[in-house]
Write a protein that binds this DNA or RNA. Structure first.
Lengths: 188, 188, 188, 188
DNA sequence: CATGAATGAGAGTTCATTCAT
DNA sequence: GATGAATGAACTCTCATTCAT
């Protein structure tokens, strides 16, 4: 039933989603939802925290593996697309609502997660620049935002079961992000 | 006053924004807004259509200039970041709300604009692949989405008057998109 | 300008008429009306009191003429249709709104007028029954309402300048009220 | 609950009636009404269409009975007063609001009903004139309006459970309409 | 005299939530 | 576990009215 709610939230936006719509999609009446959940907000909370829990399980495993910076970035991107595949709705909700939600105490964990996230990615990029794996002529914060957005916005159009598997999409994205889309360019 | 409304819509989301909040931000009472606008929706309409009007003025000029595919992409990206600079709030609103809005007849122009947009970008990318300017081993639709999202999501964090000028950001984005962030990669 | 307001009130109803509609019909802006009138209610007040003033001037002349009961009824009906002709809108407003207005102190004169009205008509009918001019087998209060309504409701469809003059309509109405519409009936 | 709404509409007028007044009269809060009805307008719609449905059931039975013109008129009047007795509020609402409502598509059936109504009454009167039952020296359209208004305006003052039963009122009205209120008049 | 802009009370309506059944 | 009915706060919007210009 959380899955149903997540789909509706993702499609219509949290605020524009009425409890009745969720109930309709779940085949019951609006009042009946309250046997299962405390509130509309608690559904959202559970959707987001479950997603972030699984995301960090994956990320932490990658970060603990002791890979080089380029390999770490690659693994994080692959992991991210797998999460998009498994939690598409949650990711879409996160993208749309997190800024406004993170102001509320109940969703403080969104801010924490975001900071941890930034530390992991930005740190890896900086490590990669120092190690000569990534270009030094780019603003690293800009690069961070570029890579981050590039990956996660995919949730807005990705549909599971489409032509490309998550791993295939990850591979193509990585190729674009790392090597660019132009032909014959080089950074000696 | 449309600027005020756009800022509030961008920050809180259209649905979560009450007319009272807009009125507060504009220094008047909620009812007073209706002397200037027919409805909350008409404010949104005017914000988005004004933005799209100016966007297409710029895009059309670029597309009519007869540039090569790579130069066209470069010019479109530069133009896009300039629009983000001038219409940051409108772009953010567009990003968040357009999917759900485009279902309504009143906002049918969003769908039209999106199709024109896709045609311009996708066409240029295909032309570039054919001309040997862009890599042929990538899915061109995936590449399109990658480039498109890469550019426009910037509106979610961009603040006018920050460290980087729009043109500087465009330059860095283009460098990443075209040549990648990795050092020493080449596509001969 | 009162005439304009009266027409709009008559057509749309007092409550459904906005000040703006009156102003539109008068060729000015809503706020400008307040140079001429204190309030929407005062327009209504002036319309109704002017009409009732003229009505009673006519009625009082009839009642003071010392006519017999049948001739008095005839004269009152003729006078009424002349008032409908001259104050069609006011009569229509009166018909629709008086019950609800008469509860307000400002419009107490409506109640007074109505009582005077009832006294004049009912008294004449009773006088006529006693004098053998009118049938005694009918409930006189019912008869009063019958005659009263019969006359005044005409304001709802009457349009000045139509086929029938007010006096012609009065003549036909009187013929129906006094002698009935059936052929060959008699009350010896 | 429709009955409650009808009473309030009848007494105060549709526009002057707030949903809060209806809710008060029904012993609930304004918002609660919307569990039972889509809108204030849909209450009005249901009240009027229910009334017209029953009215035409009665009228159609009369018209199908194959009576002579005078008997038809008598039966229609009797039927009308019975409807006033059963749907007093609805009739009063119809009288006050129908002209303005019939302009809206939703209430187009009011216009249709009115045309059917006119056809039934006017046709019967014309038939009666041709058959020598009614006077030929009167304008038949004027007569139609006279009879029509005479009957239905009664809803504005009629109170169920009063001194006169609907059938008694109908009898007196018919006597006045058919034979007049004057004594000794004849139409040979 | 008229305008344009604002006010503020109140309208119809929506919706998350509650709760007896 | 689910339903139907109700709650009450909040929302968008309307409108009579005011007033500086």
């Amino acid at each position: 039933m959380l899955g149903v709610a997540a789909d509706v939230f993702a499609e219509q936006g949290y605020n524009a989603t009425t409890v009745r719509k969720i109930a309709d999609a779940a085949g019951m009446l609006a009042g009946s939802l309250y046997y299962h959940f405390d509130s509309k907000e608690s559904m959202l909370d559970e959707i987001l925290s479950t997603f972030l829990g699984e995301l960090w399980a994956g990320y932490d495993a990658v970060l603990a593996a002791g890979l080089g910076p380029r390999e770490t970035i690659e693994a994080l991107v692959v992991e991210s697309f797998r999460e998009i595949d498994r939690h598409r709705a949650a990711v879409a909700i996160y993208q749309k609502e997190s800024r406004y939600l993170s102001a509320q105490p109940r969703f403080a964990y969104l801010t924490e997660s975001q900071q941890k996230f930034e530390k992991a990615w930005l740190g890896t990029l900086e490590r990669g620049v120092a190690a000569g794996a990534f270009r030094a002529d780019l603003d690293v914060r800009l690069t961070y935002r570029f890579v981050r957005d590039t990956v996660w916005v995919a949730a807005s159009w990705y549909r599971p079961g489409g032509l490309h598997s998550p791993d295939e999409i990850a591979r193509q994205y990585l190729s674009m992000v790392l090597d660019g889309i132009a032909l014959g360019s080089a950074h000696p």
